[in-house]
């Protein structure tokens, strides 16, 4: 009977010498040491032997088992050493794994929202097809006001006419929509697509993204506006940025301001990015016009606040060094894969 064990042992050892990978070692283990291996079966069948043989047989089988387990360990060590010394070119590229990418405008919008969220601004959205009333009239831009020239507008065909339909030219109508629905205090930012009836070139789009900001309460001041915008440019473009504001005109703010930040590319010393001036125009802003407040039912003697609006593409262009605004809408994978 020991001969039979010896044969099993020899066969198993011969086979083990041929095993060259972890997988083959495991297969060998199942075959020669597993539940259904000959050795295991031999051990199980000990009970059928005459009692005087059982002990010797059991010892032999267990010895063989220990030998094979030791051999397996040894073989495993050998293989490990061999693998360690084998030449693997670690500079080979990995097999392709492809994550997708988010659009740079989505990334920029998220960055902007992340800056304003801790200041209590909640992100809201509104319709892209809008009534003239919200896009213009409630923003203190009555029909035939020359300020309408500031926004070249797409108009929508209508059968019936409860009001004039247009593609919103800015995200500002959402100011009126929010204030109509909730009492002060209000603090929102409004990301979204806007439309201008304007020929495209490297710096103009007919469809683009804006973010509107609005904060109204009893004592929100122009200093708060300036501070908020300073906080924003520093969070977006680095702690060294400065912000300055100068007088401007928008029908829905009074006083109105244009905000510029010190150029992030040259730190204000003048370079091609800022056209040599050291400053970059970044957004329009102002204190909400008392007429706008009154028209949505806020008492302009009690409540006041600020509003601002910025072009998301402009922020993204500055951030990523994109020079043609149309790139954002061509959706070329060679472009999209560079971000996020």
């Amino acid at each position: 009977m020991n001969t039979r064990i010896d044969e099993l042992l020899a066969a198993a050892q011969a086979e083990l010498a041929q095993a060259n990978s972890d997988g083959e070692l495991e297969a060998w283990r199942v075959a020669h040491l597993g539940r259904r291996s000959s050795l295991t079966l031999a051990l199980r069948s000990i009970g059928q032997l005459p009692p005087e043989q059982r002990r010797a047989m059991g010892q032999a089988a267990n010895a063989a088992r220990r030998t094979l387990e030791a051999d397996l360990d040894a073989r495993r060590q050998t293989l490990r050493r061999r693998t360690a010394h084998a030449h693997v070119d670690v500079t080979m590229p990995g097999y392709p794994v492809r994550l997708g990418r988010l659009h740079p405008l989505t990334l920029t919008l998220r960055d902007i929202r992340r800056v304003f969220a801790p200041l209590g601004f909640r992100a809201v959205s509104g319709p892209e097809v809008e009534w003239d009333r919200y896009n213009f009239e409630l923003l203190n831009i009555p029909a035939h006001h020359p300020a309408r020239d500031m926004w070249d507008t797409f108009h929508v065909q209508q059968d019936a006419r409860p009001g004039d339909l247009l593609l919103r030219t800015h995200t500002s109508p959402v100011q009126a929509r929010v204030m109509e629905q909730v009492p002060p205090p209000v603090r929102v930012i409004v990301p979204g697509k806007v439309y201008r009836y304007e020929n495209r070139d490297a710096s103009h789009e007919a469809e683009f993204m804006q973010v509107e900001g609005l904060a109204v309460d009893e004592r929100i001041t122009m200093a708060d506006l300036r501070g908020t915008l300073t906080y924003f440019v520093r969070a977006m473009f680095g702690p060294d940025r400065d912000l300055r504001i100068r007088a401007s005109y928008f029908p829905f703010t009074e006083p109105s301001a244009e905000a510029e930040m010190s150029c992030h590319a040259c730190n204000g010393s003048g370079c091609p990015v800022c056209g040599g001036s050291g400053w970059i125009e970044i957004l329009g802003a102002g204190m909400v016009h008392p007429k706008v407040l009154a028209d949505v039912g806020y008492d302009p003697d009690t409540y006041q606040g600020f509003a601002f609006g910025m072009g998301v593409e402009r922020i993204a262009m500055l951030k990523y060094g994109v020079t043609d605004i149309r790139s954002f809408y061509r959706n070329d994978l060679r472009f999209l894969r560079q971000f996020g």
Partner: peptide, 11 residues
């Protein structure tokens, strides 16, 4: 005009 952050009530 100075730089401040808006104080005020929670919305």
């Amino acid at each position: 005009i100075p730089n401040t952050l808006p104080m005020g009530r929670v919305t």
